[in-house]
Design a protein around this nucleic acid. Sequence first.
RNA 1: CGGGGCGUAGCGCAGCCUGGCAGCGCACCUGCUUUGGGAGCAGGGGGUCGGAGGUUCAAAUCCUCUCGCCCCGACCA
Length: 571
Amino acid sequence: MQYSKMFIPTLKDSPADAEVVSHKLMVRAGMIRQVASGIYTILPMGLRVLRKVEQIIREEMDRIDSQETFLPSVQPAELWQESGRWDFYGKELLRFKDRHGREFCYGPTHEEIITDIVRKEVKSYKKLPLILYQIQTKFRDEVRPRYGIMRGREFMMKDAYSFHTDDASAKETYQKMAVAYENIFNRCGLGFKMVVADSGTIGGNFSHEFAVLADSGEDHIGFCDSCDYASNLERAEARAPSPAQDTPKLDNLKEVSTPGKKSVQEVAEFLSVLPQQIVKTIVMDSDQGLVAGLVRGDREINPIKLKNLIGAEWIRSADPKAISEETGIPLGFVGPVGLKLKVFADREVEASNNFVTGANKTDAHFTGVQINRDFKAEQIGDIRMVIEGDPCPKCASGTYQVKRGIEVGHIFILGTKYSKSMKAHFLDLNGKENPMVMGCYGVGVGRTAAAAIEQNHDEKGIIWPVPIAPFAVHIIPTNYSQDAVKKASDSAYKILQERNIEVLLDDRTDRMGVKLNDADLLGMPLQIIIGPKNIESGKVEVKVRKTGVSELHDFPQVLENIPAILKDLVS
RNA sequence: CGGGGCGUAGCGCAGCCUGGCAGCGCACCUGCUUUGGGAGCAGGGGGUCGGAGGUUCAAAUCCUCUCGCCCCGACCA
């Protein structure tokens, strides 16, 4: 492609509203423009990258017999009512009516649609397993879109769905899919981790995320520095506390006055105890009503782990007013002793003795509290947040590291959640009807491209990994109005094209500085710089964008080596 | 949804407090010169100052309402 013919509106200044580097660079490099909050136009340079990512995805999907389909983005409400998600999904689901007043939504995901087609067309175990995927625009009316296309409301996603006769088959496909995903992100040149994850609103009971480690990531990833355990922090397990060596002397329960002391910090100072001798009582709201979670004073509660422990559909922080109204207890003095709510305790609380809790009345706490003696917990489990430095739950010697990650892919085993509610049944060997076991698997296409920039850039601009670069080679004539330079540049352009190498020729008559700066911004892996003096002696400069290293080579012989140079850059 | 900030030319901003010609840099157009790291000179085009209402002789500026966008917390590819 000739630069002068391509629509590449580059900018010198970053737009003021761009916060993260990938957003800034994508706008500056003329890849995207914002239309509304979380909604973007993808310009030619941006689309070339997305298409590259898509192509890699297609190849890896095909390899595991996942077949491409194309599902409608506009979906009838009935299907969502059938699955139960019309009411459950909330405001994130963009809903509207057609001219007849029939309700529709713009698909945020496609379980309903795919389950509908499969239940109609597949009746026999002989047709299973079946894996279908599509690459399509999704819309999720997120509360807070941000960071350009990294978290837009409208976004391109590859979503695959699998249907099985049983759990074992689903698991097998899940493993294949995990390998395919590793291939995809490896091929895109990304450093990532496959981590244990929560399944959120998609549902199901088993899932992993693919997280690209980057400071701008919105997820927190906990991983062991010694073994291969890695998990989203919202799911990361804590190592079980070791049981006490000797039986401590148990104090009696005693009420003490703590006027105005609400926070752990305040109470600890006031009573001269360590924060870990306090047990905090966090009241959460869920589909099961208000529940209380107990964690040590020096810990944070992990709502997701609590949700999973109690088997709730959803959980969130309770409104302080609701707490006071339902329990009659002022915030800051809630404790498990005599509390009317169901109480769930972290294992560390069970392992603690003589601790301090709120006394369920204003300006008072209990000391010498003992679980099982002074109160009973509904259930005891792992409900605290792990932090960096905590011991690994899986191996003896490791400790947790915590880093930020961008979730570029997510795979789930859904079980029979959708097949049961939507009656996607098949007949087995014995002619007996069973619900299909399902899995679903997503890759954020735009997010993957953005993550690639987060990991591959410098102060001058983008440094594309070869496999997803918009062009492999960028030819830069330093002065395109000079005959010798123009002639050499045109011929290099032609020869590389004949070799099926994607090449961008900067045929603009601008000064060299302008062109070199744009080239560094746009970030093609290889630059061929052709100037009058060098070309006179039969040389051109070949510069590797990533290293900045530039070498003189014989021209045109060097063109034969370009494929090899590019190949070297991939590994 | 709660808290904070910002809307002035394509991009980045000043002007607003203290009302009085709508400005600057970059980008864009024309001409000449220039061409190895974002050129110089000369000339030029481009604005409902987010929108509506109000106060005033006079509003980008003050007041009210409204819309949009961004940032910080609960959700997600």
